[in-house]
Amino acid sequence: MGQTLESFDIHAPKAREGAECLWAQMRDMPGLYRNERYGGFYVVSRFEDVMTVLMKPAIFGSGKGITLPPPDAVRSFHIPAEIDPPEHREYRALIAPLMTAAHARAREPFVRAMVTELVDRVPIDTPVDFVRAFARPLPILVALDLLGLPASDAAELEQMVGDLHREVATGVKTGAGDRLKTYSENVLIRRRADATDPQADVVSSILLGTAFGRPLTPDEQMSMVRLILVGGFDSTSSALATMMWWLATNPDEADRLRTDPSLLDSASEEIVRFASPSTYLRREVMEDVELSGVQLKKGDSVLVAFGAANRDPAKFACPDEIRPDRKPNQHVGFGAGHHRCVGSFIAKTELRLAFEQILARFDGFRIDETRAIEYTTGLGQGIIALPMIFSRAS
């Protein structure tokens, strides 16, 4: 049994179950849905309203924290996700040049090699969790390469990030936040001695770059590395799992993509819209303002429901269907405005190459119905367990 509007809680154990129905109810009601949990917050669910919030950072700020519940007064900021313009631009400029479409194309050989290696390990005619076998390790390995860190750190990082999300969802302390902070600090100490080219990788850029006409402080550097580690794994993993679920449950569409690989780019874009891996993020109202007929006060919390906006029928025809040829597809799966996902080109490269290799290397795949598909909760609500059985193409 899914949630109701009265019981709505993004951290509940089965928060993703039936979410589409709740999003529809929120979009259809006048004004904005209001919830009294976590100190009280409004949910922005219509596409037009979501765009208003995302494009007006001076009114709907990120600087007071983007999590729900809101962070404590004493906390470590996530730079640049929790920095508002114009300061945000200074920090983002350090890493954005390494995340362009051209840089994503240049990294294709590495990404393709990782995809091939992981596909080779997928067992044939044997139950396997696609998330553990492919969707989780691929973005971790790509992120480590982007940062200039060794692939041998993957298991340790995956454990820390997983523990951190469980801590946020349950409130049970795991120490993951402190471990991740220490790991990030040690990375910077280790790399400081040999970093000579700010364009070599993201850690080098953070170490050698400047903001506001000065080098970053150790705390600023640590925050930026930590954010990339936390944010770079889960969203792409969720999109990859959604991709595989869709292919397995729509064999005709899989055949269509095999026949017409020109659709792979638009299919990747559509998967991000449908999955909305960053399902919710908080903004804080910085000055009194009216939105959708509701008078918001300075200090109010607004929860941006990206998943709801990406299923808004006022914006997307048949929004609950994955249409690989959907155009135009101006979704908010990567956000919008100043805080649009800086790694979107890398993520889409991973999706496209995963599509390409899986469709070529397997002639069949199906959901293993003896085990359950599992979803995570919280701000990002995606598939975290996808039991499957694959058969190999001859």
Rank of each mutant, 00 (worst) to 15 (best):
T4L: 06
D9T: 04
D9L: 04
H11W: 13
A19K: 09
W23P: 10
R34M: 12
G39C: 04
V43K: 03
V44M: 06
E48F: 03
M55Y: 10
K56Y: 01
P57Q: 12
P57R: 08
G61P: 02
S62I: 00
P70R: 10
D72F: 03
R75W: 05
F77E: 15
H78E: 15
H78G: 10
E82S: 11
P85W: 01
E87R: 06
A93C: 10
M99Y: 07
R107C: 12
A113V: 00
E117L: 13
V122Q: 01
P123V: 03
I124F: 02
P139F: 06
P139E: 11
L141C: 01
L146A: 14
A151S: 13
E156V: 07
E158V: 09
H165M: 15
E167N: 12
E167H: 10
V168T: 07
T170D: 12
A176E: 06
D178F: 09
K181I: 07
R190N: 11
R191H: 06
R191I: 00
A193D: 15
V202A: 10
S204H: 05
L207G: 05
F212G: 15
T217M: 10
M222N: 12
V225F: 00
I228Q: 12
G231K: 07
G232E: 12
S235W: 03
T249N: 15
N250F: 00
N250Q: 13
P251G: 11
D255I: 02
R256N: 04
P261F: 00
S266H: 07
S266P: 07
A267L: 02
E269I: 08
E270C: 13
R273K: 07
F274I: 01
S276E: 06
S278R: 04
L281H: 01
L281T: 04
R282V: 00
E284V: 11
V285H: 01
V289F: 13
G293M: 11
G293T: 05
K298R: 14
V302S: 08
V302G: 09
V304H: 06
F306R: 01
F306N: 08
R311N: 13
P319M: 08
R326M: 10
H339V: 00
R340P: 05
I346P: 02
E356R: 12
L359W: 05
D368S: 08
E369A: 13
I373K: 06
G380N: 15
L386H: 01
P387N: 09
F390G: 08
A393L: 07
